[in-house]
């Protein structure tokens, strides 16, 4: 009896109900603004003293990188042999190197180089990594399999060694560094994005969006990317110190930016020759500021990760 009544009621449903909505146009237009989540994140971030310190330091270092070289009458390349290896004083705030070049100006010029490389590397890594990982995870199946096998092989290579090899071939220079870092750097990001997309693409809200006629494009833009943005931003933040370290490392090996351009790595390398002579400022200032920059980005990235991690929410 029951079966029959159910059948009957099912047949009572008007047929119009089963006509699918036209795609895109008549989709539900109510969006959730979603800014309360980010407000939460910001609150947690600024409650973290170390992360806030990092953010302020990044801000100050950026300002100084822009205006620092203009604060003195010396340029990063102007030499003054008579004043070679002068200790810090009123004219040369951080002293001079063996060619009489002003260390203060060179340190902030090096900050420009380092921050530029860090940001460029993070941006390129973001573009390639998100595109590659996104396609791989979203498409799935064979495409995913092939794309990930390629990544697996590349992931098995020692990162910095490959960068060194690329630099030997491409020759030293600012842009070759960025290219070399980009060729190897996107792999981690691609894996991260793919993992996130795989996890999210079967989530119920994605299914709901699809049922309501959301296109692939819309699903990726409105649902997948915003929900993976946390880990992506953290990964980008932490790429910056990695890239800055890589630049300094390459410059230290003589594969980085070329003289007379100053970078923290080349300045440290130049200081190696005078390390036991008492010209302490030659090493101290570039060493201090590269460490400060790495510190700032690392603690800020960590703080960001903690702020975004839902596990920390109480």
């Amino acid at each position: 009896m029951e079966d029959r009544s159910q059948k009957k009621s099912a047949s009572n449903v008007p047929d119009e109900w089963f006509v699918p909505l036209p795609k895109e146009e008549q989709r539900e237009t109510v969006h959730h603004k979603g800014d309360s989540y980010w407000r939460d994140v910001m609150q947690r971030l600024f409650a973290n003293k170390l992360a806030t310190t990092g953010l302020i330091l990044i801000f100050l270092l950026t300002i100084m990188a822009i205006i620092g070289p203009m604060l003195t009458e010396h340029t990063y390349r102007s030499q003054s042999i008579l004043n070679s290896n002068t200790a810090p004083n009123g004219t040369y705030w951080f002293g001079t190197d063996e060619l009489g070049r002003d260390v203060f100006t060179r340190v902030w010029y090096g900050a420009r180089v380092s921050l530029f490389i860090g940001l460029a590397a993070a941006l390129i890594e973001f573009i390639i990594g998100v595109a590659y990982g996104g396609i791989s995870g979203y498409r799935g199946g064979k495409i995913d399999n092939v794309m990930m096998r390629i990544v697996d092989v590349l992931y098995g290579l020692p990162y910095l060694l490959v960068v060194v090899l690329l630099m030997v071939v491409m020759g030293p220079g600012l842009f070759t560094i960025i290219i070399a870092l980009s060729i190897t750097g996107w792999i981690g990001m691609a894996r991260l994005v793919r993992g996130q997309v795989l996890q999210l693409k079967n989530a119920e809200y994605v299914l709901a969006s699809r049922v309501l006629g959301g296109s692939n494009n819309r699903i990726i833009r409105k649902h997948l990317l915003p929900n993976t943005s946390g880990p992506i931003i953290v990964s980008m933040t932490l790429t910056v110190p990695t890239a800055i370290f890589a630049e300094a490392f390459l410059s230290f090996l003589g594969l980085g930016v070329q003289a007379p351009v100053a970078s923290w790595g080349t300045m440290a390398n130049d200081a190696l020759g005078v390390i036991q002579t008492g010209y302490w400022w030659r090493l101290f200032f570039p060493a201090f500021f590269i460490s400060l920059t790495m510190f700032a980005f690392n603690v800020f990235g960590d703080g960001l990760r903690d702020a975004l991690d839902p596990k920390m929410r109480k």
Partner: peptide, 18 residues
């Protein structure tokens, strides 16, 4: 830990010598 991550190893090596 933060110091260890922040100061690049070659800088540490040079600071140790100096």
């Amino acid at each position: 830990a933060i110091i260890g991550i922040s100061i690049p190893n070659f800088i540490q090596a040079m600071l140790f010598i100096q």
